[in-house]
Simulated assay, not measured.
Amino acid sequence: MSETIDGESVAADVRADVAECVETLREEGVVPGLATVLMKADPASETYVSMKQRDCEEVGIEGIHVEIDADAPAEELYETIDDLNERDDVHGILVQMPVPDHVNKRKVLRRIAPEKDVDGFHPENVGRLVAGDARFKPCTPHGIQKLLAAYDVETAGADAVVVGRSDIVGKPMANLLLQKAPQGNATVTVCHSRTENLAEKTRNADVVVAAAGIPEFIDGDMIAEGATVIDVGINRVEVEGEGDETELVGDVDYESAKGVAGKITPVPGGVGPMTRAMLLYNTVKAAGEQGGVDVELP
């Protein structure tokens, strides 16, 4: 039976560290502030933003929330970002994705000042990550690194397979795993929708990170005995035979995988809490750098 990697517990530890740093910053006259911007009338996005604001409140970060009508001109969003870039009380900016179709997503990411880009998606921050000099590590991959460290998963010399090549998870995860740094030094293979013989590759991996966005795409037959499996997927699917009832599942078929994997993250309760916790981590880091205050973030 696999050991379950408890993301809720590790995220709680991260939040505790963040809260201590917030106190340090406040003692120096710096009140960390995170601005969230929502421009799409989407229930899931509204829920995510409210959760992030609640997380901020719990650790002492000031939350600033801006809502823009989904039908408003794209320029209204760009100007909102410009205003937030100029505000001294805003240290981090997060524009909730997706944005409406008439808004250029890449323009949005480039508009956020790199030093306030706590998601780590601005091209300057992506470049620094690839170069091994990250200002901010993207929240989900960084959270995964924290999970690997907390559960003593050795990545140095390990074979790691990342299933998925998104800018948000797949690409930065691969970069972090191969870097010459803690929770790095792995030999990394990136797989995707065009990969042939996927099961052959995942079965040879010591660490599998599933981030393809396909419900229960990877099952126990595709995993090596004792491997560590990190499931990034969050998919809402109908419960068979239960009418309109739905449930959350990952990109891994948990029931078949848990009897094979050595360690595995559940869905929910695995990677998700870490993503939110690392957003707080990055916000505090940004506040320290912008306020000229040294904060000790592990």
Rank of each mutant, 00 (worst) to 15 (best):
D119Q: 05
V267L: 00
I68Q: 03
V293T: 14
E57V: 13
G259F: 12
D294V: 05
G120N: 04
N175E: 12
Y78Q: 13
R54V: 12
A149M: 06
V99G: 15
Q145Y: 01
A174T: 04
L109R: 15
E67S: 09
A286Q: 09
D82L: 08
Y78G: 12
V153Q: 02
P141E: 04
D101L: 11
A261P: 00
G33W: 02
H142A: 10
D88G: 02
N235M: 07
I81E: 06
A70S: 15
G250T: 02
G33R: 05
E76Q: 15
E20Q: 15
L248I: 11
Q53C: 12
L280T: 05
I68Y: 06
S166F: 00
T189E: 03
A150S: 08
R194P: 03
L148Q: 01
Y281D: 09
E58M: 14
V162K: 01
T140K: 13
M173Q: 10
P138Y: 03
G272E: 06
L25Q: 10
M1H: 12
Q145N: 04
D294K: 10
S2F: 09
K52L: 13
V18F: 04
A286L: 09
E115S: 03
A158D: 02
G170F: 01
A286F: 13
K285C: 02
R128H: 10
R110C: 15
T36N: 04
A12C: 11
G213D: 01
Q183M: 12
C139L: 10
